[in-house]
Computed example of a mutant assay.
Amino acid sequence: MRAHERAASLALACLSLAPLLVNVNPNVNVVLTACLTVYVGCYRSVKPTPPSETMSKEHAMRFPLVGSAMLLSLFLLFKFLSKDLVNAVLTAYFFILGIVALSATLLPSIKRFLPKEWNDNLIVWRAPFFHSLSVEFTKSQIIASIPGFFFCLWYASKKHWLANNVLGLAFCIQVCLHGLTLII
């Protein structure tokens, strides 16, 4: 993590926690938080070599269709199922994605304190009955997901505004870093 990114991340953390201690102008907080979030996400996305993958025209054309289908499915869920069931499903969805986003956001900070082989050696997990479904991860990613797991437990149990904001910041940083592929 470079000095600029570290300073921006620290400022972002201070801006998130400031409303707990002092009265903060919401407009200033929103503008500064948005700018710093984009800065941190974009700064992390800069790589020494250009990415080898590019998005095809078909994938780009599919985004509005997938987004529309998602919104339609949410509308149908709220229309025909109980509010409590839909909230439970959305909480579970944000719980799982929150762990992934928080661990990916924390990983660059934690990585440098762990042994090098924990960062390099991939562990491949394959689903028992669906052999084409596999997940690759490292020990460093597992360590980074532990605080994310406990944070998401707090989010799911309390639904505190600070937990919601921190998850939103982690999602935004990862979307800036990886594009929309994290969401889909």
Results as ranks from 00 to 15, higher is better:
33 T>F: 03
34 A>C: 05
35 C>Y: 02
35 C>S: 14
36 L>Y: 00
36 L>E: 01
38 V>W: 03
40 V>A: 02
40 V>G: 00
40 V>T: 02
41 G>A: 00
42 C>P: 12
42 C>T: 06
44 R>D: 08
45 S>G: 13
47 K>W: 01
48 P>H: 00
49 T>M: 03
49 T>S: 05
50 P>M: 06
51 P>A: 09
51 P>R: 14
51 P>E: 08
51 P>W: 01
52 S>H: 14
52 S>E: 13
52 S>D: 14
52 S>M: 14
53 E>F: 09
53 E>P: 09
54 T>W: 04
54 T>I: 10
55 M>N: 06
55 M>I: 07
56 S>E: 02
57 K>G: 08
57 K>L: 10
58 E>F: 12
59 H>S: 03
59 H>M: 12
59 H>L: 14
59 H>N: 15
60 A>R: 10
60 A>G: 07
61 M>W: 08
61 M>L: 12
61 M>Q: 05
62 R>Y: 15
62 R>T: 13
62 R>G: 09
63 F>M: 07
63 F>D: 15
63 F>E: 07
64 P>Q: 13
64 P>N: 14
66 V>L: 05
66 V>K: 10
66 V>M: 04
66 V>R: 13
67 G>M: 03
68 S>P: 10
70 M>I: 07
71 L>S: 13
71 L>V: 09
72 L>G: 14
72 L>K: 09
72 L>R: 15
72 L>Q: 04
73 S>L: 11
73 S>P: 11
73 S>M: 15
74 L>Q: 09
76 L>Y: 03
77 L>Y: 05
77 L>V: 12
77 L>S: 05
79 K>C: 12
79 K>L: 12
79 K>T: 10
79 K>G: 14
80 F>W: 08
80 F>K: 04
80 F>T: 11
82 S>N: 11
82 S>H: 15
82 S>F: 11
82 S>A: 11
83 K>G: 09
83 K>P: 03
83 K>F: 14
84 D>V: 10
84 D>L: 11
84 D>C: 14
85 L>A: 04
85 L>W: 01
86 V>G: 02
86 V>Y: 07
87 N>T: 15
87 N>S: 15
89 V>W: 06
89 V>T: 10
89 V>N: 15
89 V>M: 14
89 V>A: 10
89 V>H: 08
90 L>N: 00
90 L>H: 00
91 T>V: 11
91 T>A: 07
91 T>N: 13
91 T>P: 10
92 A>P: 06
92 A>F: 03
92 A>G: 02
92 A>K: 07
93 Y>S: 09
93 Y>D: 03
94 F>N: 02
94 F>S: 02
94 F>I: 06
95 F>L: 02
95 F>D: 03
96 I>H: 11
97 L>I: 10
98 G>M: 06
98 G>P: 04
98 G>S: 12
98 G>W: 08
99 I>M: 12
99 I>T: 00
99 I>D: 00
100 V>E: 09
100 V>Y: 11
100 V>L: 15
101 A>S: 06
101 A>R: 05
101 A>N: 12
101 A>Q: 08
102 L>N: 00
103 S>D: 11
104 A>M: 09
104 A>G: 12
105 T>G: 04
105 T>E: 06
106 L>W: 06
106 L>K: 00
107 L>V: 04
107 L>E: 09
108 P>H: 01
108 P>C: 01
109 S>M: 04
109 S>P: 04
109 S>G: 15
110 I>E: 07
111 K>T: 06
111 K>V: 01
